[in-house]
Write a protein that binds this DNA or RNA. Structure first.
Lengths: 208, 208
DNA sequence: ACCGAAATTAACCAAATGGTTAAACTAGAT
DNA sequence: ATCTAGTTTAACCATTTGGTTAATTTCGGT
């Protein structure tokens, strides 16, 4: 009856809760999420949520940090590549592929960012995020003559904008541009990896 | 004592409520907003909200449609200009300037978009929004040889992404890139009107 | 001065919601 | 078998929240 309930090992339940919490928080945001819904999705009693994570806010923070940790390293790793072309290609790929797998993530982060901007800085530190690494990387490449000399911050914002914004506007795009065909959107985003690289090449790489 | 209370004229109170509701909904979103806070900000009794707008949802919808109506026409008007260069410049300006005045608007819209994607299509119709007009415009210009022949949808997404995304990520940018200096961010966005145009020119205009 | 309709308020209500508690259960150690 | 510490649950609680009601006020028209 109570099929695969894993009693003995406490940390299993903890992970079950975190998974359920991630799903619900990602979809509804902090304000829209309900502890009961998380408990239901985890298949446990609501009191367990508080037993493992004291409060809704604590649970949310854990989910938030975990989500962030899941995607930022991929961006950071991309910068370890020497060739600027490959590095930028990796960044574009990291953003688009990570978010293709977790389409709710961008809006989740952006929403939370507006809800509690103060808390955000602290959490960023905890995860060790420093957008300056991208700016610095671009600046270096410019100074070494591998990229056109422009404003590196502007360049970073442009690249991230083109990668991330479509995810933020995804439901709108699917409805109004893709005639409700999700697959069409996925296909579009697949192609964008290359098409964004073309823009980057045309605008930022030195033609020879 | 009760200074400038405007009793008799119903539509005045109605507008007072709508203004307060706009402020609160924009900042907190539908889920985070509280009817009491709206009433307080409007300086009236909570029951008045329901007297004029039946329910929270009805009030929210009104605010949402009104907000949308406020900015979309500016985008649409920009397309009436013949010269593609000036038209695109107007679009970039319309987005950036509108959102500079209402920095919460993008996140408000994007958040709602994820909360109730279904409702969104209906509201879009009510306001008369049709992103296809931009795509069509670009396609025309390409066929007439004024713009490079590329995927017009992709081009539109790129332009809108570069214009709008920084607003969605505004608190993050201010904290991590601007050292909490909001004015610096405003200055950055001022400059972006031109810098985005440069990208557009380089990638999409035909060089002669 | 008075009437009636619209506007406004205080008090109230039911449901939802985050959180708590005390008791019961589980499993490994002795 | 029993003890104990960690786990799980049902029932409960206080507060919040959207919404309602009935009475009162306001004000233009007569």
């Amino acid at each position: 009856m109570d099929d695969l309930k894993n009693k003995q090992s406490g940390n299993v339940s903890e992970q079950v809760i975190l998974n359920a919490a991630r799903d619900v928080f990602m979809e509804k945001g902090m304000d829209g999420a309900r502890m009961q819904e998380i408990a239901d999705k985890a298949g446990i009693n609501k009191a367990m949520l508080h037993y493992y994570f004291r409060s809704k806010e604590k649970l949310f923070d854990k989910v938030f940090v975990e989500a962030f940790k899941e995607f930022w390293p991929q961006v950071q790793d991309a910068l370890k590549i020497e060739s600027p072309h490959e590095a930028l290609e990796s960044i574009v790929q990291a953003y688009i592929e990570t978010f293709m797998e977790k389409p709710y993530l961008p809006n989740f982060i952006l929403g939370e960012l507006h809800r509690t901007p103060e808390k955000f800085g602290l959490l960023m530190n905890e995860v060790g995020i420093q957008p300056k690494v991208i700016v610095d990387f671009l600046q270096q490449q410019m100074e070494m003559g591998y990229l056109k000399k422009t404003n590196p911050m502007e360049m970073m914002i442009n690249i991230i904008s083109m990668c991330v914004f479509p995810f933020a506007a995804r439901p709108l795009m699917i409805q109004l541009l893709m005639k409700n065909d999700e697959e069409k959107w996925n296909h579009f985003m697949e192609g964008r990896k290359e098409s964004i690289m073309n823009i980057i090449k045309e605008c930022y790489f030195i033609k020879q």
